[in-house]
Simulated scan of single mutants.
Amino acid sequence: MSSLSAHEAVKASRRLVIKIGSALLVEKETGQLREAWLKALAKDVAALKAKGTQVILVSSGAIAMGLEPLGFDRKPAKLEEAQAAASVGQIRLAQAYQSLFGAEGMVIGQILLTIHDLENRPSYLNARNTVEALVERGVVPVINENDTVATAEIRFGDNDRLAARVAQMAGADTLILLSDIDGLYECDPREKADAHFFDRVDAITPEIEAMAGPPSAITPGTGGMITKLKAAKIALAGGCSMIIMNGHAPSPVMRLEAGERSTLFPAATDPMTVRKQWISSLMAPRGFLHVDAGAVKALRQGASLLPAGVTEVDGNFDRGDLVAFVGPDGHIVGQGLSSYSVEHATLMRGRKMQDAYEVLGHVGRSALVHRDDLVLL
Score class of each variant (00 low, 15 high):
I115N: 10
I115W: 08
I115R: 13
H116M: 02
D117Q: 08
L118T: 08
L118W: 01
E119V: 14
N120I: 10
N120R: 10
R121Q: 13
R121N: 05
P122C: 08
L125D: 08
L125I: 15
A127L: 10
A127W: 04
T130R: 14
V131I: 15
E132A: 15
E132S: 15
E132W: 10
L134E: 10
V135Y: 09
E136G: 06
R137T: 14
G138M: 10
G138S: 11
V139E: 02
V139P: 02
V139Q: 02
V139F: 02
V139A: 04
V139W: 02
V140M: 03
V140C: 10
P141T: 13
P141W: 13
N144A: 09
D147W: 11
A150I: 08
A152Y: 00
A152I: 12
I154D: 08
R155Y: 00
F156G: 04
N159S: 06
R161D: 05
L162A: 05
A163M: 09
A163P: 11
A164C: 09
R165V: 01
R165T: 03
R165Y: 14
Q168I: 00
G171N: 12
G171P: 13
A172D: 10
A172Q: 09
T174W: 03
T174Q: 06
I176S: 01
L178C: 07
L178V: 05
S179G: 01
S179W: 00
I181A: 10
I181H: 04
D182Y: 01
G183P: 05
L184D: 01
Y185T: 01
Y185K: 02
E186W: 00
